Simulated assay, not measured.
Amino acid sequence: MTDPANKQPYVLVPEMTLLETLPAHHKKRFEMALFMMHNSLAESLSWEQIAQESAISPYHFHRQFSQLFGETPGQYLGRVRLQYAVSLLSSETPLKITDIAHECGYSSSQAMAKVLKRELGMTAKSLHQFVVSGTSADMAQLLDKLSHPGSNQSIEKQLAQEMPTELVWYPARGMKVKDIPNFDWDDVFETLGEKSTRLMSTAPISELERKWKDISFTVGDWQVDSEHYDYFIPEGYYLCCEVYLVSDIAYLAAIEGLFKQAEILGYQVNESAHLIEMVHHVDMSPIGGATFAFQIPIII
């Protein structure tokens, strides 16, 4: 694959794609509004307050936002709150329910419970159990309810369909395995920051339909000297993509999109090999995005 330092990743972020259609001065104000929506949840600001703080009249903000995003600012803000709540409730060691509610901008745990029941048909406890015991397909179905609405399917899935891919032959590779219990990229980013780019993750393709906790992830440092390798990846052809994303929704959409593109292109996926994930860049700003490289083995 092309050197990631000289290649721009494909952006799988609906907000960034939609804002590209705006004039520069409008785009800057909308970017400020979106930043506040995502990073001031605990302050429980209304969309009207956010519009005023972004130097946009609430009337024009509501009209332009609805036309551009296909949902009102209030609907978008509510969806962002729920996304964050689901993320916190999905943690291996979640916070107290009341703390999560306040962190996401809900007035109380009861208010958050009503939204969870109405939008997802779940309680906080059942949601946590669902994430722990569910399969990746179950999780994708859940997150699809939180995705950016499009005409026929979510915008994340639409973008994934247009994601560029490349068939690349790789020589044998290796890494030194690291013990990371309950492996999760978000936890890795929080712990290691930019050092996360040293890691490679592999998962047997034959296990991807299992419950998330039963998938045999192997994680290791691929930047150590080869003499320290204790895990090896065989040579072969891989269908690859490199994407910038900021959400679990886009993460799953990218992987699903890569497998669908392999099918469309007529490639046979090697079911006895592994899905490979690497991180080329981690954005440690409040935006919190990351550039992922996904690779699936192809039989030629």
Rank of each mutant, 00 (worst) to 15 (best):
M37S: 08
S107A: 09
G134W: 11
P58Q: 02
Y10E: 04
F69Y: 12
T165I: 09
T93F: 10
M139E: 11
T202S: 00
E48L: 11
K176G: 05
G78C: 10
Y106A: 00
L88D: 10
G74Y: 07
V279I: 09
K27S: 02
E227N: 05
W222E: 04
E119A: 10
K260D: 07
E119R: 01
P14W: 05
Y76D: 00
A137V: 13
I287S: 12
G105V: 00
P4A: 07
V224D: 00
E103A: 15
H102T: 10
D3K: 05
M175F: 09
R81F: 13
Y76I: 02
A137S: 12
K176Q: 07
H38G: 09
L89T: 14
G257Q: 01
L127Y: 13
L239M: 09
V279E: 00
L95M: 15
G105C: 02
V80C: 09
L12E: 06
M122D: 01
S196M: 06
I56K: 09
P164G: 02
P23V: 02
L258S: 00
V224Y: 07
H228L: 03
R173P: 07
T218Y: 01
V224A: 04
T123W: 13
P4C: 08
S91P: 13
D225L: 10
I255H: 03
V279D: 02
Y237I: 10
H281F: 08
A101V: 10
V132I: 14
Q129R: 13
T135R: 07
F69G: 04
R173S: 04
W169T: 08
M16P: 13
K114F: 12
L116C: 11
V282D: 01
E31G: 08
Q8R: 12
P73N: 08
R118D: 07
Y237E: 06
A137H: 14
P4N: 03
A124T: 12
L245A: 07
L45M: 11
S206H: 08
H280Q: 06
L95A: 12
L142M: 14
Q295C: 15
F292M: 05
V13P: 14
D221Y: 06
Y267W: 13
F69Q: 09
A55D: 15
W169F: 15
